[in-house]
C-alpha cells in the first residue's frame, strides 16, 4: 500500500516546508541585520557586526524603540489588570446585562484597527486632546483589552470551581480565597495575556499612526523608512526582540516539560 505510506509522510513533510516558508522573512531580517550599509540600504553590501554593537548610533531608531517599550509596558499593565477583572466578572458572576457585556467585550476584536484608530482620533479631535504618547497608550490599552479578556477567560474555564469552594470550606474568607487560590491558579493565563498584550502593543502600527501625532514608535519608524529601505539597525532591533521573545517562550516550555517529566518519573 504505497498510497498509505505516502499519506504518512505527506503531512510531516508539508508541515516542515510550511515552517521553512514561515521563517523566510524572519531569516531575511536577521541576515540583513548584519548588512554593511555601504551606499544604500537595499541589497547585500557585506557582513559586519557594526549594526549590533553600535545600534544606537542610529539615534532615531533607538528613540523610537524606547517609546515603543514605554507604551507597551504601561498599556500592558493597565489592560492586564482591567481585562482580568472583566474576565472574572463575566465568567464567575451573574448580573443583569451579562450577555450585552460579553458582546461589548467581543466587539473590539471584530473592529478593524483602522476603524478603531480613526474613531479614537475623531474623538480626540472633537474633544481637543492633543495627540502624543498619552493618546497612544490610551489607544493601546483599548485594543489589547479584549485580547486579555479572551485569554484570561479561557484559563478561568479550565479552573475547577470546587477548588475555590474547598478554600471557602477551609475557613478562607473571600479575599483570601482569591489571593491564595484563584489568583495563583489563574497566573499562567494572566501572564500569557500580558505577553500577548505586550506583543500586540509593541508591534502595532495602524492604530498608532492615527493617534500618535508627531511621536515616533518603532513600527512608525519602520513604516516611514520602508520607502527608501530599512536601515540595518532596525533589523537589529527586530531580530533582538525576536530572539529575546523566542528564548522566553522556550524557557517556559522547557521548564514545563521538565516538570511534567519529573512528575512522570515519580509516579
Amino acid at each position: 500500500m504505497s498510497k498509505f505510506s505516502l499519506g504518512k509522510y505527506l503531512l510531516p513533510t508539508y508541515t516542515i516546508l510550511a515552517f521553512v516558508f514561515l521563517m523566510i522573512p524572519i531569516a531575511y531580517t536577521f541576515i540583513f541585520s548584519f548588512n554593511d550599509p555601504f551606499k544604500n540600504t537595499t541589497g547585500w553590501q557585506g557582513f559586519t557586526f557594526k549594526n549590533w554593537t553600535g545600534v544606537c548610533n542610529n539615534i532615531d531608531v533607538c528613540l523610537a524603540f524606547g517609546n515603543s517599550l514605554l507604551i507597551a509596558t504601561i498599556a500592558t499593565i493597565v489592560s492586564t489588570i482591567l481585562g482580568t477583572m472583566l474576565a472574572i466578572a463575566v465568567t464567575r458572576y451573574e448580573f443583569k446585562f451579562r450577555s450585552a457585556t460579553n458582546l461589548l467585550l467581543f466587539l473590539p476584536l471584530a473592529t478593524p484597527e483602522v476603524v478603531m484608530g480613526a474613531g479614537l482620533a475623531a474623538q480626540f479631535l472633537n474633544v481637543g486632546i492633543p495627540k502624543g504618547i498619552g493618546t497612544v497608550i490610551v489607544a493601546h490599552i483599548l485594543f489589547t483589552l479584549s485580547f486579555v479578556v479572551v485569554t484570561v477567560k479561557a484559563r478561568i474555564a479550565t479552573l475547577d470551581p470546587k477548588l475555590e469552594e474547598a478554600g471557602r470550606d477551609l475557613y478562607a474568607p473571600p479575599v483570601q480565597v482569591f489571593a491564595k487560590i484563584t489568583l495563583p491558579l489563574l497566573l499562567p493565563g494572566i501572564m500569557a495575556a500580558a505577553l500577548l498584550a505586550f506583543a500586540l502593543s509593541f508591534d502595532d502600527y495602524i492604530i498608532t499612526a492615527f493617534n500618535s501625532g508627531t511621536e515616533v514608535t518603532f513600527p512608525k519608524y519602520v513604516f516611514a523608512a520602508a520607502v527608501r529601505g530599512i536601515p540595518p539597525e532596525a533589523n537589529v532591533i527586530g531580530s533582538a526582540v525576536f530572539i529575546f521573545a523566542i528564548a522566553l517562550v522556550l524557557v517556559f516550555q522547557i521548564s514545563g516539560a521538565m516538570r511534567s517529566k519529573a512528575l512522570a518519573k515519580k509516579n
Binding site: 515552517f19 514561515l22 522573512p25 524572519i26 502600527y205 519602520v222 527586530g238
Partner: peptide, 16 residues
C-alpha cells in the same frame, strides 16, 4: 514556530 512570526515586527516581515 507557528507564533514565531508574531515576535518580529509585522512591518519588518512585510518589508522582507
Amino acid at each position: 514556530l507557528v507564533i514565531a512570526p508574531f515576535f518580529i515586527s509585522f512591518l519588518l516581515r512585510t518589508f522582507a
